[in-house]
């Protein structure tokens, strides 16, 4: 009973935190409202006995929101991130899309025949989740991850306006490299 109340209470925090993202007028508040929402979701996952997944959700989302605070100030022109600002735009379209999606999903939930439970939860639900997600596709996943990392690195390299010739000179012999931001290990 108490666990049920806690579970639903945390669910409410998650939903309200998510809604607050669009209601508040400051980037910092929006960012950390989203973090709060995700922490609540992570705690709900803890209630589902997925301890690892729950704690990792909290860890990753808090870290991500902290990083977002860096980008917020780095990349937003004229720094509106530091001033009060509206978190919404294209209101009419957004309301239409949101309502349509909600109605479609709600109809689906009400129309579909819900399956009855077969079997019982395995003793280690995290292991079972991992196996059913990754099991036969482990090779694909193992190949995709380095490809994804390579894509990110290639994207950054292509996007950066400075090349190795800017850093090391025309004959690539200039040491230490000429960087606008000096490194910490004297390269």
């Amino acid at each position: 009973m108490l666990t049920d109340i806690a579970f639903w209470g945390i669910g409410l925090v998650a939903v309200l935190g998510g809604a607050a993202v669009f209601y508040v007028d400051s980037m910092a508040r929006a960012t950390y409202a989203l973090a709060l929402s995700f922490v609540a979701v992570g705690m709900q996952v803890l209630f589902l006995q997925q301890n690892y997944v729950g704690v990792v959700t909290i860890l990753m989302m808090v870290m991500e929101m902290a990083i977002m605070a860096v980008y917020m100030v780095m990349f937003m022109g004229m720094n509106p991130a530091l001033m009060p600002m509206s978190m919404v735009h294209s209101n009419k379209t957004a309301i239409a899309v949101a309502l349509t999606t909600f109605l479609a999903l709600a109809t689906g939930i009400l129309m579909v025949d819900w399956p009855t439970r077969r079997g019982s939860p395995p003793p280690d639900v995290t292991m079972a989740l991992g196996e059913s997600l990754m099991g036969p596709k482990m090779l694909v996943m193992a190949v995709i991850s380095p490809v994804m990392v390579a894509t990110i690195v290639a994207g950054v390299v292509l996007a950066a306006h400075r090349t190795r010739y800017d850093r090391f000179g025309d004959d690539l012999k200039q040491r230490p490299a000429d960087d606008p931001q000096p490194g910490g290990v004297g390269r």
């Binding site: 973090a35 690892y52 860890l59 808090v62």
Partner: peptide, 22 residues
């Protein structure tokens, strides 16, 4: 006695990022 106590500690130390910035 959490079965993922090490991750728990890690998640808490990441909280400090948010808190000091806030």
């Amino acid at each position: 006695d959490l079965d993922v106590g090490v991750m728990w500690f890690n998640a808490m130390d990441v909280m400090v990022w948010a808190l000091v910035w806030l």
